[in-house]
Design a protein around this nucleic acid. Structure first.
Lengths: 212, 212
DNA sequence: CATAAATTTAAACAAATGATTAAATGTCTT
DNA sequence: AAGACATTTAATCATTTGTTTAAATTTATG
């Protein structure tokens, strides 16, 4: 059986390249991913990468943009909803975010690895990623400080709450490679079951840590 | 004023190369670090890198080994101490580990990024990193399961406890670049103060989450 | 069908990169 | 001081890597 010319899936070559690039960039980072690897993974001629996307860097920036939206977009959407209480937001984020990360487990390492550019001293950070993070921070601080004033939450810096929530959700994914690879938890299923458990546990833990 | 021939610090050239390599590898990873960058950072002739360490890969493996020891060694040492209660271990680890990470903030991302080799299916993971992680897991599970049996701790999978402790300690460091760079927390001092606070907070949080 | 446009291919280029070589310089021992 | 050994240097090599080119092929259009 021969592969037909259009072969593989019925994605356009442009989409095939982008998907292959996203997979490799996300798994291995910019430097470790070679244009020839992308071409091979996409099943296309090397020159087509430049034909459609001009350069490796341009292609990476496209992937980056989509990953940032995936990684930060969901949180922003949930936290700007004024109709939800803080604890409802926590439950929503824990639930949806863990689902999303189970399907994109390499996302956290990728984002952490590539958002490294500090804004010039005295200047504001620009760009979609910066704006999203600032928004998340803003909503978060508003909610927590409100809870503290009303005597519901213990008086801690809101950043602790934010760091703990994000850490409890995301940390297992950034360390999973390490733990799974080296500690004999070769059982992917077991990891997934644990993460589903955490959807319900994390909201309880946040309460236990920060409610008076 | 001229730099003397031996110049810079009074480290041997071999040590200078290793230190420069450690800094760059740890910050940027293997692929992004070029041998010429290392040579320039160390202030040595390019050929000396190969003269002393044979190859970039060999040099990297050396740095990797030292970083693994730094990253996992402390935890193992504390957790294999049979004279401490679990909660004393937690307090010790939180305290010492945060201090160490404040001096080596790029360590977590580095280790996460480079421990990716899974053991072959059915096979055991070997090597110093694997052994250390397995040890930590073992001690951890023993302590928690003991606490659960004695009715002191809630009945949750020990991996949740381990993931949460490590996450609360390490997560701020893997996300600090992101938060500091993009969210306007340009204040390194503020971050450090927060991390010192967490030394005392984390043991309390662990209790709040897992004690009956 | 014929022609223009879009897409794909094989080949090649220039720069970057890890490594090596042979000569030069430095250090140590006797 | 002389010779042996270790260290350092400048130059060069062979590959790898991102990109370009020109021709071939396919697809769209009149």
């Amino acid at each position: 059986m021969l592969k037909t010319k259009k072969g593989e899936q019925d994605l356009s070559t442009e989409e095939r390249i982008k998907e292959a690039a996203k997979k490799l960039f996300t798994q291995q980072g910019f430097e470790a991913t070679k244009t020839r690897d992308i071409a091979e993974a996409a099943g296309i001629n090397l020159a087509l990468l430049n034909y459609y996307f001009r350069s490796k860097k341009k292609l990476f920036e496209l992937v980056m943009k989509e990953n940032i939206q995936l990684f930060l977009g969901v949180i922003v959407e949930h936290f700007e909803n004024k109709n939800l209480s803080f604890e409802e937001k926590v439950a929503f984020v824990a639930d949806h975010y863990i689902d999303m990360l189970l399907e994109n487990p390499d996302l956290p390492s990728f984002v952490q690895q590539h958002i490294k550019t500090r804004p010039a001293p005295g200047e504001e950070a620009k760009g979609p990623a910066a704006q999203k993070i600032q928004l998340i921070r803003k909503y978060f601080i508003e909610d927590i400080e409100d809870g503290i004033k009303r005597g519901i939450y213990k008086d801690v810096h809101p950043m602790h709450v934010m760091a703990n929530l994000m850490g409890l959700i995301i940390w297992p994914f950034t360390s999973t490679t390490m733990l799974m690879a080296k500690a004999g938890i070769s059982n992917r299923k077991e990891f997934e079951r644990m993460m589903h458990e955490r959807k319900k546990l994390i909201p309880m833990w946040i309460q236990a840590m920060f409610r008076k």
